[in-house]
Amino acid sequence: MGQIESFSTLPLQQCIPSYLYWEYSDDQDLQAFVTSFNSITQGYTDWFNNTPLGLYTSPNVTGPLLDWIGNGVYGIPRPVLSNQTSFVTAGYNSIPYNTMAPYDGSSFTSSGASSLASDDIYKRMMTWNLYRGDGQMFTMGWLKNRVNRFINGANGSDYEVLNDPPSISVSGNTFTITSFDDSVFTALQELVNARLVSVPFQYNFSFVNISFYNDGGVLWMTAPLNYPTSSVGLSAGAVWYNGGTVAVTPGGSGAGSPVYFGSITAAGLLSLGGGGLPTSNPHNLNQLWNNSGLICISAG
């Protein structure tokens, strides 16, 4: 009678070792060969136990193996991320007269760049399309969960959805998604615009990137999003949005690792805090510093 498969039963953890017949047991060369053979076969066993081929989020599933699983098992090829825009100009009286040759001709122009998605973005995209816990009915909650999971779930991992990022609003049939500007959010925009992640075709999507900018040596942010807008109740060294500038509550060591404008994201600074920023100008180009509670950018 066959054994019933059960997920509570672990697969075989140790391979059945090879061994020498007794009459050859005193041969050191043969013993070394058998030991090496057993080590290699145990390595294969360990790899298969640690790399379930259906679990694409595994850290062992990368590169060509990820492509094979994504395309072969799930039917989702690795996406090409593109910010390319194209323009077609054609037809009589569609452009100013005598600006195109030949008369009543047509032209096609495009600009931008494209690249294959990294393993991390590929896995996040697969989780968006394969996740079933949100149900199949499109709602604001469904969209917010998926966007939040994509932004925060490294390598396609699940993420406990919170009420913070992203901010999503709707007007008519257009959903506007607002989040901190970084490479992951940019990738999401390109995937949504190309309809490579599952979204209803009836709706349009626009994006607002919350980012830093340098205003005469002072760090400004385009909108608060999830930043506190008051210092009340914040811990020492926490950052908050002060009407456009980014402020730091009193306290902190001032001796943290250097943080640079252009490298740190708004989300990253919110998580890091400002307690480690130097409290005097470090005279190091683009390094952030705490100027009596106001985050400034060193000019070098």
Results as ranks from 00 to 15, higher is better:
Phe180Ile: 07
Asp104Leu: 12
Asp119Thr: 00
Ser167Gln: 15
Ile69Arg: 00
Leu277Cys: 06
Gly300Leu: 14
Ser115Glu: 12
Asn145Phe: 09
Asn281Thr: 08
Val61His: 00
Thr45Phe: 15
Gln287His: 06
Glu5His: 13
Trp128Cys: 01
Leu20Trp: 04
Ser111Lys: 10
Phe207Trp: 07
Pro165Cys: 07
Asn284Gln: 11
Gln136Cys: 02
Met125His: 02
Val34Gln: 02
Phe150Ala: 09
Leu270Cys: 06
Tyr92Asp: 15
Asp46Arg: 15
Leu81Glu: 06
Ile121Leu: 06
Tyr241Gln: 06
Leu81Arg: 08
Ser230Phe: 09
Ser114Met: 13
Tyr159Pro: 01
Thr57Glu: 02
Val246Cys: 03
Tyr213Phe: 15
Val218Leu: 06
Asn284Gly: 01
Ala90Gln: 13
Tyr131Phe: 09
Asn60Met: 05
Ala187Met: 08
Leu272Asn: 11
Thr222Gly: 06
Asp119Leu: 00
Pro79Ser: 10
Pro282Val: 04
Gly133Met: 01
Phe185Val: 06
Thr89His: 10
Gly237Pro: 00
Ala154Gly: 03
Ala194Trp: 03
Cys15Asn: 10
Ser167Asn: 14
Leu288Met: 05
Asp215Ile: 02
Val248His: 05
Gly275Pro: 06
Val239Leu: 02
Leu196Cys: 01
Leu270Pro: 00
Ala223Ile: 04
Asn291Leu: 12
Arg132Asn: 09
Gly112Lys: 12
Gly254Met: 08
Asn291Lys: 10
Gln202Lys: 15
Asn193Ala: 08
Leu188Phe: 11
Ser231Ala: 15
Pro96Asn: 10
Trp289Thr: 04
Gln13Gly: 09
Ile210Ser: 08
Pro200Lys: 07
Pro52Leu: 00
Ala117Asp: 11
Gly217Ala: 14
Gly254Cys: 08
Pro79Ala: 07
Leu66Thr: 01
Ala90Lys: 09
Val34Met: 06
Tyr227Gly: 05
Ser230Trp: 03
Leu130Lys: 03
Val161Lys: 02
Gly141Pro: 07
Tyr44Gly: 07
Met1Thr: 14
Ser115Phe: 14
Ser280Cys: 11
Gly153Ala: 07
Val184Leu: 11
Ser58Ile: 00
Ile151Tyr: 03
Ser18Thr: 04
Gln13Asn: 11
Ser263Phe: 15
Thr89Asn: 12
Ile40Leu: 14
Met1Trp: 12
Gly112Trp: 13
Val248Leu: 09
Glu190Ala: 13
Ala255Cys: 10
